[in-house]
Amino acid sequence: MSSKKKVLLKVIILGDSGVGKTSLMNQYVNKKFSASYKATIGADFLTKEVVMDDDRVVTLQLWDTAGQERFQSLGVAFYRGADCCVLVYDVNNSKSFETLESWRDEFLVQASPMDPESFPFVVIGNKVDVEESRRMISSKRAMTFCQSKGGLSYFETSAKEAVNVEEAFSAIAKQALAQEEAGDFNSDFPETIPIDLKNDRDGCAC
C-alpha cells in the first residue's frame, strides 16, 4: 500500500436480474462486453481507480449483486457502509423499472444511512441499444420517477455499445466521494485517563 492513501468508495449496484448490472461493471472496468448471460451468484467485486476532476485519485470498490430474489438474504452485509447506491433497470422491461422503488427502500432499510434523504442514488436505464420499438420505459417517465425521489441522477446507457457508461460511473464516483466526505468530522482528541494514584479506581485491577 502506498503511503498516500487514496479514498476508497464503496458502491453497491442493485436491480432486477438480467438488467445488465454485471455487464455495466465489466464495460466500465474491463472495457469488455459479453453477449452471453451468466447470472451473478451472490456477489461480485471489482475495483477501479478513478481520477477525479481535481486530479484526486479515488478507488471504487464495486459491489455487484445478484438480482435474484434468493440472494436477498445477503442484505445488511452488503449494504452497510456504502457511499453510493446504483439502481439499474432495463429500459425494455417495465417490471424492472417498477421494482426500482422497492430496491431503493430495501437499501435504505438495510443500510440505514445517517441521512436517508440525502443519500446518493444513481439510476441507470440500461440496454438503450435495443431498437426503439421495443422500448417500454420512456426517458420522461424515468426522469419523473427520479424527480419524485428527491432529484436522483439519471443516466441511459448501453453496456453493450459502451454508451454513457463512463459518464454514469464518473457521476457515481463524484456523488460517492461527496457522501464519504459529508459528515467527516475532526474527532476530538481522546481524553487523558484521570488517574489518581492515591485512590485508584481506574485501569485494570489485575
Binding site: T47, W63, A77
Partner: peptide, 17 residues
C-alpha cells in the same frame, strides 16, 4: 495495495456477514 486487496476484503466481509 488497495487495487489488489479491495476485492478480497469485499469477499471476506460478505462471508463474515
Amino acid at each position: 495495495d488497495d487495487q489488489l486487496i479491495t476485492n478480497y476484503t469485499g469477499v471476506v466481509q460478505t462471508l463474515i456477514s
